[in-house]
Amino acid sequence: MTRLTIALVIGLVLGLTAGLLYAWVISPVQYTDINPSGLNAAQREEYLMLIASGYAADGNIARAKQRLAALGDPDVARTVTALAQRAAAEGRSPETVSALSALALALGVGPGPVPTAVEIITPTGAELPTLELPTPTAAITLFAPTPTGTSVYEYELASAQKICDPQLPGPMIQAQVQTADGKPIPGVEVVIAWDGGRDHFFTGFKPELGLGYGDFAMTPETTYSVSLAAAKKRAEGLFAEPCDAGNGKTFLGAWLVVFRRLP
């Protein structure tokens, strides 16, 4: 390599470094007259929340869609859903969470897949799924829950069914929260309580299982209750019951609890 080539390469490297330093640090591009798609990530979320609040105020989905289109998001329904879940998890105001959830529903978030193909155990002779008793002597009892928060909507306990699915990773409580016409609702807080303990989760954190879905791993020989902050009733007396695996062995089953939003 000749000395001239070496000088050229050194000059190139120095010039390139100086150019990048100037363009990225000293005088970066200034954006003006942008549309909402050019907002930074945090401001895009704020914009989405404002669109949801606007929809909550005027109920005009055409206007909401027009505003959302300006964000240039190819899957805006999922983005809104994810934001609703995060807003709920972060403890944002019930108005904000409800507005985002309502917008996600209005955008046509379809029902998620049923968690898995399950064997639903129902009492012999029953035409419709009914509450399965944990033991012959115990019963799922329905109580008016102690109010734990505020919500724009009220919910009812639609069903609580024991499911025997060997594909499930273990005994668990699966919760589904739906609208009156069966559409999943993300971002709803589900409260699990047991003797000496209490936990909660939000629906929609496993979108592959449905936007209104959430689950909780059960500990054997522990009895649980499941409720929503705004539900009129809760399911009680749920515990991991043995299921017949078909080869003389048993495994611990799960519970599917469905809450439905009142119209």
Binding site: G15, Y22, V29
Partner: peptide, 26 residues
């Protein structure tokens, strides 16, 4: 080399890969 490098650096930094729009607020 310096002039060519400076031009390439500015073009890349302003046009090809401008910094993330961290300051692009409402």
């Amino acid at each position: 080399g310096g002039i060519i490098g400076l031009g390439l650096g500015l073009y890349y930094g302003w046009v090809v890969s401008p910094p993330e729009r961290v300051s692009s607020g409402p």
